[in-house]
Every structure is written in structure tokens, then in C-alpha cells.
Amino acid sequence: MKNQSELYKKVCEYLGCDLDSTPCKQIQEYLKVCRNCEVYVDKIKKTVNIYKVADSCDQLPGDICKKLFITLNLNDLNHPEELSEKD
């Protein structure tokens, strides 16, 4: 079990609040009696992580890059190899 202070910071972070804000101070009090809070925060963290992992699998298709530079009339400036290897 993490110590109270560390838990408090985690809950605030995942609720999106500033650490010294009133909601966070209220949460600090609440944590003293809430044993499920750490589990809740862990699930929020894993939920966000699932979406980050899922999104990181997406690649920008090479033909979209080429079409983009043609549309922008910038295709004469870059080599296709460079464009596909960047990012």
C-alpha cells in the first residue's frame, strides 16, 4: 500500500486537479477512509494507457504523405525517402 501523501498526489493527478486546490484537499481527507481509491486510480491509469498503446499502433500511410505535399505544392522540396522516414 502506498503512503497517504503519494496516493493523494496520484488521485489529484488523475482527476486533473492542481495539487493545492480545494478539491485535492478534500480528497486528501477522503483518502483517509477510502481504501478503494488506489484501485480506482490504477484503473483510470490503465484505461488511459490502453488508448495510448492502441493509438501508437497507427502509422501515417506513405501515400497520404505524398498526396499531402502535392496538395500543398511543396512536393518539389522533399525526397520521398526522407518524408517516409521522418517522425
Binding site: C34, N36, D42, V53
Partner: peptide, 17 residues
């Protein structure tokens, strides 16, 4: 959150995601 017994999520199999 406070009244229901919380069950933890173990580490996910991210390959399946």
C-alpha cells in the same frame, strides 16, 4: 467507489489491444 469491494486489474496483455 468507496462502498463496493474493489477488484484490481492486473497488467494487461497489450498485444491483444
Amino acid at each position: 467507489i468507496s462502498s463496493t469491494a474493489a477488484s484490481e486489474w492486473p497488467t494487461f496483455d497489450y498485444g491483444q489491444i
